[in-house]
Amino acid sequence: MTVDAGSLVLALAAVLVSTFVQFATGSGFGVLGGPLLLLIDPRLVPGPLLLLTLVVMLAVVWTERRGLRHLDLGWAAVGAVPAAVGALWLARLMDQRVTEVVVGLVIAAGAVAGLAGWRVPQGRTTLIGAGVLGGALSTIAATPGPPVVVVYRAEELARYRANLSLFFVATTVVSLGVYVASGDLGQQDLVVAGWLAPGVALGWAVARLLVRRVPPGVVRPAALALCVVSAGSLVASAVVG
């Protein structure tokens, strides 16, 4: 896989911004980065994006590790693991454009509902359901976040960021395992992810300077708004492309 210089610069910028957003809101790396990288070069998703996602999520979990005193998303992970494995079969059956439209509409519906004030009860059943959707979306489009963002709430920002990112670590590891076992993740994906890794490092550096200045009250609405934007981009790219 070769990526031209112009596309590489754009992809690095997308990764940088997405990394900062992940550190600031606890979500958004795949939701924002996935559609942007698809627009730049469809080959950047899901393999390279999943590899970068794992690095970013581990970095956020380490940075916000004090928030892991309470592990809130265990039930979501229970739903996500089998869904992430089964979704590869679904992804192979569905046309890529159809998949992108379906994923975009699911993301948009959940995010708009959250912004409108619709509160999904945060319990075992809803967390498992969100985990199932998130696990499937992780394998299909490397975007496990929106279903869980709609359901999960925590008052402490460190707890919110750390638990969301730990959930994303789990879904990403499973999805990567599925792609490795199926032969759909190759050495070229590792090489491209390595080219884009400086974007992660720069995004992390910017986040260390600015994240603590983000007002707590804007974190969840910002995460939901990003879900809407990314969903629109994903559907538009599928329809136009």
Rank of each mutant, 00 (worst) to 15 (best):
Arg66His: 03
Leu105Ser: 02
Val229Leu: 15
Ala116Met: 14
Pro82Ile: 06
Leu12Pro: 00
Ala222Pro: 00
Ala13Asn: 03
Pro121Asn: 11
Arg92Phe: 02
Val174Lys: 09
Val178Cys: 10
Val31Thr: 15
Tyr152Cys: 12
Ile128Arg: 12
Ala141Ser: 14
Val178Ala: 13
Val214His: 06
Pro82Cys: 07
Ala5Ser: 11
Trp89Cys: 09
Leu8Glu: 01
Asp4Ile: 03
Gly134Leu: 13
Gln187Lys: 08
Leu105Ala: 09
Thr125Gly: 04
Ser182His: 11
Leu8Ile: 01
Ala91Gly: 07
Leu190Val: 12
Ala109Gly: 06
Leu209Ala: 12
Met94Ala: 14
Val150Tyr: 14
Val200Pro: 15
Gly123Arg: 14
Leu8Val: 02
Asp4Arg: 11
Pro215His: 08
Thr171Trp: 06
Ala158His: 07
Val98Asn: 04
Leu164Cys: 03
Pro121Lys: 14
Thr143Gln: 11
Val239Pro: 11
Leu38Ser: 01
Trp118Leu: 15
Leu37His: 02
Leu10Arg: 01
Gly177Asp: 04
Met1Pro: 11
Gly232Ala: 10
Leu210Ser: 08
Val192Asn: 05
Ala141Phe: 02
Gly28Arg: 13
Asp41Ser: 08
Val191His: 06
Val103Glu: 03
Leu16Trp: 11
Val173Met: 13
Thr143Asp: 03
Leu16Gln: 04
Val78Gln: 07
Arg66Tyr: 03
Thr99Ser: 12
Val206Gln: 08
Ile107Trp: 01
